[in-house]
């Protein structure tokens, strides 16, 4: 999520666990074990019932993030297992710390090796990050003027490396609300309703992958299944081809766009992936465009 200060990025991230499908007992047991080993369990709680939400401060070290130490302890990525890892102010994290995230994001587990032994901690988490578009924070703001030079903006955005950005499926720009919109009293959609929609989509996926071992949701599809379940019609293929060349997307991004499109279709209850699903999925790769900073 990219947007000016005070536009609600952190607010939305904090509410994310409330719309995710509830933990199953076995998932909860895994997460509780990690917290038990780390000694981070509350005294009066037995099983962790809600998906964990971890938001480490940006001064965090590599070891604290992925785990390690003399007697290897689970890090923040493992504590966020089956939940959300939220990195607020992503460019403020040190570069080396962000790069260590690459492998756990892909493998969903982390292997910590020491001379005498090695341990493996699972870390299947949803990575959510928020950042400002530039050092002053107001680039692209509808009212406020940005005081940063193009060079500064460029440097700021390039603190997030390409490989990491490539792994982020949904990149969205958040614009601040005007006074009229803020003062409107009508409450938005509540979490329970959204969660129900998410769970319905999950159910469709469960049914679809009933015959495939170890696959429960779209994110876990391999490329062969992708061709089978997220097949595109001719028009969509053409659109994806032009998007790929224009945005110079990687093969991984290609797979991920298809998965996102499949998920959008599931949310709508559509059996096939249609052009507008695909268009929406491509639209979520905002930052992949090289000219984000120059576009204005």
């Amino acid at each position: 999520m990219i947007g000016p200060p005070g536009s609600g990025k952190s607010m939305m991230a904090k509410r994310l666990p409330s719309i995710l499908p509830p933990l199953s007992l076995s998932e909860s047991l895994e997460t509780t074990q990690i917290h038990s080993v780390a000694g981070k369990l509350n005294q009066d709680c037995s099983l962790i019932a809600q998906r964990p939400f971890r938001s480490p401060h940006h001064t965090i070290s590599q070891v604290a993030l992925v785990g390690g130490g003399q007697n290897p302890q689970p890090g923040e990525v493992s504590l966020a297992h089956n939940g959300v890892l939220f990195c607020d102010e992503l460019p403020e994290f040190s570069r080396s710390v962000l790069e260590v995230l690459r492998q756990p994001l892909e493998d969903r587990q982390i292997n910590i090796s020491r001379a005498k032994y090695s341990v493996t901690y699972p870390c299947s988490f949803m990575f959510v990050a928020s950042m400002n578009p530039c050092p002053c924070g107001y680039y692209n703001h509808p009212q406020k003027a940005c005081v940063c030079t193009p060079g500064q903006i460029h440097r700021y955005l390039h603190k997030i490396s390409g490989p990491l950005l490539d792994r982020i499926d949904l990149q969205i720009e958040i614009t601040p609300l005007s006074f009229e919109e803020l003062s409107r009293t009508a409450p938005g959609e509540n979490s329970a309703t959204i969660r129900e929609r998410v769970m319905r989509a999950r159910q469709i996926q469960e049914q679809r992958y009933a015959g495939c071992q170890g696959v429960h949701c779209n994110a876990q599809m391999n490329s062969r299944m992708l061709r089978q379940y997220a097949a595109l019609d001719e028009q969509s293929t053409e659109m994806l081809r032009s998007a790929m060349t224009r945005l110079q997307l990687s093969a991984r991004a290609y797979d991920r766009i298809l998965k996102v499109a499949r998920t959008i279709a599931d949310l709508e209850g559509c059996e096939n992936v249609l052009t507008h699903h695909l268009a929406e999925a491509i639209g979520y790769r905002n930052l992949d465009r090289d000219d984000w900073a120059e576009r204005g």
């Binding site: 607010m11 509410r15 666990p17 019932a49 959609e189 509540n190 979490s191």
Partner: peptide, 18 residues
């Protein structure tokens, strides 16, 4: 199990506030 399911939809924050 009972405890687990009781706490499952007990959230401090709600999207309705955003």
């Amino acid at each position: 199990r009972a405890e687990f399911y009781a706490q499952q939809s007990n959230f401090d924050f709600d999207f309705a506030d955003v």
